[in-house]
Amino acid sequence: MTATATAGRSVPPSNRPLNPRRVGVLMFHTFTQLVRMKVFYFMGFFAVILLASNLFNLQSFGQPDMEGMDVLRTIRSWSLGAMTLFSTVLAIVATALLLPKDVEDRTLYTILAKPVPRLDYLTGKLLGVLLLLFSSLFLMDLLMSGVLALRMHDVVNSQLAAAAKANWPADQIAAMRVQTEAQGVTWSLHGAVFAVFLRSAVMASAALLISTFSTSTLFTTIIGFLLYFIGNFQADARHAALGGTGEGTGPLAKAAGLGIAVIFPDFQLFNVIDSVIEGAAFPLSSLGMLTGVTAFYVILHLFVSWLVFSGKEF
C-alpha cells in the first residue's frame, strides 16, 4: 500500500503499466458510469422496442406477400440493423464523452495524481466501453434469438400444415424444414452479432484516439462518424484508384493504399453480416480473421492514443 521507508530512502512499490487489477477497476468504473447515463437507457429502450416489434406483424405492413422465411429474414435484418445502429452510435458518443468530461470535471487530475499510468487509464476507459457494448449486444442477441425461435416455430408449423395438406413427400418436407431453420437462430447469426461488436470496438478505439487530441466532445463525435462513413467506402475508393488486382500499380501507390487502409479502417470487411442475414453460413475462419483485423486496429488506436496522451499536459 504505502511506501516502505528504508534507511531514510523511500522505496515505493513498482507501478508497471497494464496492471490487470487497476485496468479492471477503471473498466468496471467506466461501465458503471455509462450504465448510469440516461442516454444509454434511451438507446436500449429504442432497441428493445425495435426487437419487440418483431413479435407482431408490423414488418409485413405494406408487404402482404411476405410470409414464411421472408418473415424470419426480416427479423434478422431489422435486428442486426438496430444492433449496428445502436452499437455504432454508442461506441462513438460514449467514448467521445469520457475523456473531455474527466478533464472538464478535473476528475482526471485526481486519477492521474494516484499511481495510475496513463496507459492503464486509457485501456480501462476503452475496455469499459467495450464491456458495455458487448453486454448490450449480448442482451439484444438473446432477445433476438428468443423472438426468432418463437417466430420460426410458428413458420415451421404453418409450413408443415400446408405441406401435409398438399401431400408433399417426406424428403421434400425435411428439406424445406432445413431451409427454414437456416433462417432461424444459428451459430452464424451469433457470429454476425459478434461481428457487429467487433465493428463497434474499432469505432470505439478510433473515437478514443480522436478524443486524445480533440478539444470537444462534438468534434470527436463528428470526426468519429466521418471516419465511419469513410471506412465504409474507402475500400471502393482504393479499388477504383489502384485497380482491381493492384497489378500495374507502382509500389508508391500500393503503399499509399495500405496507408489509407491503416488510417481508415475498412468496414466493408464487416459486411459479412449481410450474407448471414440472407442465410449464408459464417465460417469460423472468417470470424477469426475479423477478430484479428479488429485486434490490429484496436491495439494500433490504443497505442497512438497513448503516444498522444502520455505527452499531454493538464
Binding site: 507501478n15 458510469q33 470535471d105 478535473r106 476528475t107 485526481t110 499511481p115
Partner: peptide, 20 residues
C-alpha cells in the same frame, strides 16, 4: 508514476463522479 504512491491531491473545485 511511482512517486504518486506517496501523494494525495485535492484539486481546486473538484467535482468527482456524480454517479458514485
Amino acid at each position: 508514476v511511482d512517486s504518486r504512491q506517496e501523494v494525495g491531491f485535492l484539486p481546486e473545485n473538484p467535482y468527482f463522479y456524480k454517479h458514485l
